[in-house]
């Protein structure tokens, strides 16, 4: 009796994963059929048909017998901008968060217990992990974004703009009436950089706490071995990091998985613009924020299928990160990523 109830519940878990993949794949099927693999390399995202004057190679409007000749651009869906947005925000977040997290993990393992502050600090880190994504979004929207808009971004602009070769950070090229013009990017604090920083804050606790556990499992005799040979504190830390490197890579991957799938906080501060811009000060969009923004309003069949295609890519990607990460962080499989 009990065995069967348990077995059934276990199978529910398997069914959940199957449902996730099958339902998304099935609903995305029209888009998969239509766009195929080209979906991930195309950067056009046009929900509705657009009618506009046709321009010749000289950039001038083409005139026909009945006046201006119009061209019709059909709806088009390509995931490259959101894949780029997800990759860029996640990578910047990792660059910021990984050194901080590893430093804090080393401190927690090798210093804090001596100072008898390991408990309180660990509690704070774990509470940080329990704060909902939405709270970071609200904070990012009302505190971080205005701070960037009013002080950080203008300051960076004053310092970096005169530097030769950094012009592109603050200017974008747009096409207006057939001509390419250059204009300053409006610095309103809702951009790729702010989104990345919010993500960095959000993945700090998970990378810190998993790395702490990984480092804690480094055998004591390894550390004593290096110290007995006259290693300094930092040299023995390096040996420790090296010993634990695969577990630490797993910790970083868990952080990456969380960053890539994070929705609410990013949606609120990234500016939500489906474009690829070289500048981190330009608004962008991630896969998750695109879904949060558009899925509710997607009435058109192909639009919805395209969004489901994006969701499927996001799912497969985070499943892959998780599978690899969990293989690496041996013995700590239960760590919730999200």
């Amino acid at each position: 009796m009990l065995r069967w109830a348990c077995r059934l519940s276990g199978l529910v878990i398997a069914a959940m994963l199957a449902a996730l993949i099958l339902v998304l794949a099935n609903s995305a099927l029209p888009a998969i059929r239509k766009f195929g693999a080209g979906f991930i390399t195309s950067s056009e995202w046009r929900v509705n048909e657009i009618e506009r004057p046709l321009r010749g190679p000289d950039g001038k409007v083409v005139m026909g017998e009945d006046g201006v000749v119009m061209e019709i651009l059909p709806p088009a869906f390509g995931a490259l901008p959101v894949i780029y947005g997800t990759a860029a925000t996640s990578l910047i977040a990792l660059v910021v968060a990984v050194p901080l997290s590893l430093g804090a993990a080393l401190f927690l393992v090798r210093v804090a217990p001596r100072l008898r502050i390991a408990g309180p600090v660990s509690f704070l880190v774990e509470f940080l992990a329990a704060i909902p994504s939405l709270a970071f979004g609200v904070w990012g929207l009302f505190v971080l974004a205005p701070m960037f808009q009013n002080s950080v971004a203008p300051l960076l602009r004053r310092i970096l703009e005169p530097v030769p070769g950094l012009h592109w950070l603050f200017f974008e090229k747009i096409t207006v009436a057939g001509r390419i013009i250059e204009r300053p990017i409006p610095l309103n604090g809702r951009d790729l950089l702010t989104g990345s920083l919010i993500l960095a804050v959000m993945i700090l606790p998970i990378i810190t706490s998993v790395s702490r556990d990984v480092l804690r499992s480094v055998p004591r005799i390894q550390i004593e071995g290096t110290l007995a040979l006259g290693a300094t504190w930092w040299q023995s830390c390096v040996a420790m990091l090296r010993y634990a490197r695969s577990g630490l890579l797993g910790a970083v991957l868990l952080g990456l998985a969380r960053a890539a799938g994070e929705t609410m906080a990013v949606t609120m501060v990234i500016g939500n613009n489906n474009q690829i811009s070289a500048s981190p000060f330009a608004p962008a969009q991630t896969m998750a924020s695109l879904l949060a923004n558009e899925f509710g309003e997607a009435t058109d069949g192909m639009h919805r299928a395209a969004l489901l295609y994006v969701a499927l890519i996001l799912l497969v990607m985070s499943l892959a990160f998780n599978v690899v990460a969990r293989k690496l962080v041996v013995g700590r499989p239960s760590h919730a990523v999200h």
């Binding site: 090798r110 210093v111 217990p113 004591r220 300094t232 504190w233 930092w234």
Partner: peptide, 10 residues
């Protein structure tokens, strides 16, 4: 050297 003698310890 504050750190030279600190490490994980129970």
């Amino acid at each position: 050297m504050p750190g030279s003698v600190s490490m994980t310890k129970t």
